[in-house]
Design a protein around this nucleic acid. Sequence first.
RNA 1: GCUAAAUAGCUCAGUUGGUUAGAGCACCUGACUGUUAAUCAGGGGGUCGUAGGUUCGAGUCCUACUUUGGGCGCCA
Length: 450
Amino acid sequence: MELLKDLFKDCKSYADKDVVLSGWLRNNRAQKEFGFIDLSDGTTFKTVQVVYDCNLANFTEIQHIRCGASICVKGKFVLTPDAKQPFEIHAEEVVLLGDSGEDYPIQPKRHTREFLRELPHLRVRTNLFNAVFRIRSEAAFAIHTFFHEKGFTYVHTPIITSNDGEGAGQLFSVTTASKNPQTDFFGKNVFLTVTGQLHVEPYAMAFRNVYTFGPAFRAENSNTQKHASEFWMIEPEMAFADLNDEMNMVEELVKYIIGYVLKNCPNEMAFFDSFVEKGLIDRLNAVLNSKSFVRITHHDAIDLLKNSGVKFENTPKYGEDLATEHEKYLTSHFNGPVFVYNWPKDIKAFYMRLNDDGETVAASDLLVPESGELVGGSQREERLDVLLNRMNELHMKKETLDWYVDTRRYGGCVHSGFGLGFERLIMFLTGVDNIRDVESYPRTPNNCDF
RNA sequence: GCUAAAUAGCUCAGUUGGUUAGAGCACCUGACUGUUAAUCAGGGGGUCGUAGGUUCGAGUCCUACUUUGGGCGCCA
């Protein structure tokens, strides 16, 4: 049995050969004495046209095979240089393997994403979602390849944790429904992780360069296009690396992934470019070929916003976070990704390294068009006394993080890391503007079906 | 919390409240010798989101609720 991806890869060598294909019917255009089937076999984004005629014994049956049905086709591979498609299959035998009912909801027409969200198990059979999830898979592979080539060690940090996620958002409790934490499964309150960072930092003190790539969970009641309750993050951590090294690594990684999907998924990317976001490929190429991403301090970014002449709903302030409208202004002003670094310490996490001014920390956010904050990173506070002071200021329960502080007690060093939101990356790469459409079965507040 | 919407399986019309609820696609039947979101003719398919209310009369107006989209904050 042949695979469609191989037929497309080397058309000429299959000319006039007999082939066997199996897959799912996308469209069936039956006429009086012949008909055409669009067949997807899952191995490539493209479909193949199968031509069948009334010489086949089950011609009438074939005419009535509906969308979604699985079939097996034996036939001859024929090059068609004058047609829309490079080749087609002239069927000698078409066997219905799995029938599809009259009520199959996916039609050969445009569907709204809202409707398809109700059918996450069927929407992957559409062009859009087939392309999205192939990009998702390829981008994940690109990330592992990138880090592997650089000698990073891939660390699997725990999903269940007793660390109550200092400052990184609301947590989901994990429980066997015991009323008393002491008699519950772990004998204490435990949660789904909101980040792998605290757990991976100690690994950087042993392997030097490490990364995690796994799910994170946040019980925030956020209902936006770029927030989900369950999402995946890539969190590298590098010993003997400062904030500049961190930003360099982010930039190199983002460019590598863009280059990888443009090279390896041309069909999917062309589809997004024509049907999802016109100019997507140009936009990504501009990022890929840019000499360096813009780097601007938080202070200078606020100045820029203040002097922009734009009347923002939220007034930009030196000590405060950037609003979404500010992020959008910055990415469109610089027409591409922007690093904002040296953030006010009071709006950032306790582990970020205090700068000499005593006011800011060595943190950087990468803002991109489409996804907003794609990456959040920082140089970590490696000085034991400064870190403990900061934890005191924030009234943190030091006992539960004593193990983490050990990394500063025993051979601590300058180190940095970041978290890259995988779904936001996919949105950035595809132009799909809702996080619910780049996760297989998205979980958001009030929505955990399937 | 703000805002918009909910009519056939899907996408949508439906006039200042007025007879029997409309189209395209999908499905079924038929026509068609190269279609490619095929085309053409015909057919079946509706508790107009739910519950109240106003009215002689409600898909249409009012109230509440549910669900969905968009926006804001949180962040990745």
